[in-house]
Write a protein that binds this DNA or RNA. Sequence first.
DNA 1: ATAGGGTTAG
Length: 631
Amino acid sequence: MWTLNAFPPNPPLPPKKPLKPKPLLLHSLSKSGHLDEALSLLLKSHPPIPPTTNLEAYSHLLHSFITHKSLRHGELLHRHLLHSTPSLLRHPLIKSKLITLYSVCARIESARLVFDEDDDDEPSWTAMVVAFSKNGLHEDSLSLYAGNASWRSDFADSAVLKSCSVLSAVRLGRAVHARVLKSAREPDQVVLNALVRLYVKCGTLDEALKAFDGMPQRNVVSWNSLLSGFVDRGFFIECLDLFRRMQIESSVGFSWVTLTTVLSACSQITALYNGREVHAQMVKSREEPDIVVLNSLMDMYAKCGVVEYCERVFRGMGGHDLTSWNTMLTCYAINGCARDALELFDEMVGRGVGVKPDGVTFVALLSSCAHAGFVDEGRRLFDRMDVEFGVRKKVEHFACLVDLLGRAGLIDEAFEVAEKMPMRPGGSVWGSLLNSCRLHGDVKLGEIAAMRLFEIEPNNAGNYVLFSNMFARERMWEEAEKVRVAMEEKGLKKEVGRSWVQVGSRIHSFVAGGGVSFRSSSEYKKVWEELVEAMEREGYVPDTDVVLHDVDEGTKAEWVCGHSERIAVVFGLVNSGDGIPIRIMKNLRVCDDCHNVMKVVSKVTRRLIVMRDTNRFHHFRNGACSCGDFW
DNA sequence: ATAGGGTTAG
């Protein structure tokens, strides 16, 4: 590299030579990204480039335009060809590259026009199948592919398999699979990976594992395909196990995509320990992590309730995209840090940041305000979001506003919003109103909200549970029971309550009413008896009347046998040392009684209990919960 | 050198 001081003395000027438009020069210009120069060299050269080299020259140029996604240059060249040598547009090489160029520039209609112009050829057909798939026109990809039985290419196969997995078109996927197997050639790695993704997404797990284990070799994408499929299907523990297996038996290492996927699994089951391990891997790899994996890392800490680490990652990363900001805001929202959320938003929309808030941003802000009872701030943000920030109000924002008002006890006003909003309210709005009525004991309005809710979501058992709990909270046992009976008569089953608890490096999962073997262990009994004693001293009275406990009558009275989070917390106490926080993830809303139990347990054991339920965190510390008993 | 695969926030 030259510095100013080291600049060498001027060399003698070489004799001036006329610039000749050699393909070599063209090539190096386009390769180095000088697209303007390359294009004008080609179009304006005198004498013109001989026709025999045109094809090669145009093809090089188009390739550069594709890699630079330069629509402008591509269109210029396209127009030039139309005027000068339209015959070249029919050449498979040129035609397929033009299709690809339009595809990578998201101009699918232009690509389609180029394709439809003339007779098909295999390269253009392939490019078009890929183009449809890449641009989300999966049906078109399928029908173009299926409409041609004679052509086959690995590129078309992998693209159409991707579309098949999006559309769950397993039948066509299997047909492609059969073609691949029948072909004389070695199956292509990318196609095999796409098959794994297809089967894990919409086949049986057996089929997916068979496809995976049957591969002659597996690269990092093969592993990632299976890992991300597990996450899609909710097999989080399987994802973590597979990641472990990947590190032990595979020499392919991992990519940021691997870690992003694993982190997403961690955050969905609050697997903080595993998430930390992934974080350590990132640090150890000494590579610069990309923004996607850093965002996922933030999300993992956020969903595990470790706000401070989420902040640390956020502050330490090189730059922030919209997702980074939204993840940080969401972290504050679900962890009950409304003040921090509002401050961060000011920073986000301040000078020089360069991101624009979107709908997600305002969901985070409005729900922060709702949880904290910041009615005025929330209302103001709701008013500002479209006029000041140009973000269109959608149904979820109205739902947040209704939640904000309803939680604060302004139930009439919340109802008015629900009834006057410009779109159909939807289940989330009436559901949130019903929850507000439950919180404030407004049984009359609660009944109205419930009726609206049942019209929209007649088969959602969770709504009946909420409705019944509203009565139960008011000690209206008969009504609560009636709702429960109505639910059973409709054949609706409450989703099985499930909790996950982290102990050491492992996640353990417990089902409501289940966990028999652990519950009959002597350690469990000992801890349980101690807890009952301590809790009685604290004045805790088990609420055995709470209906809809998802256990049978006989065990209802045994407080510790019912809900999965209770089993999980005792398991955590038994299996972790003094002072170690216990982290629980729950798939349903926590009930009043369990919430009381957790508060007392946190006090008598002096442990921090962090519990995530379907929509927020509860940090139980010394007998109190961060949610202020408001959820 | 015609072109491809796996990923994050509500």
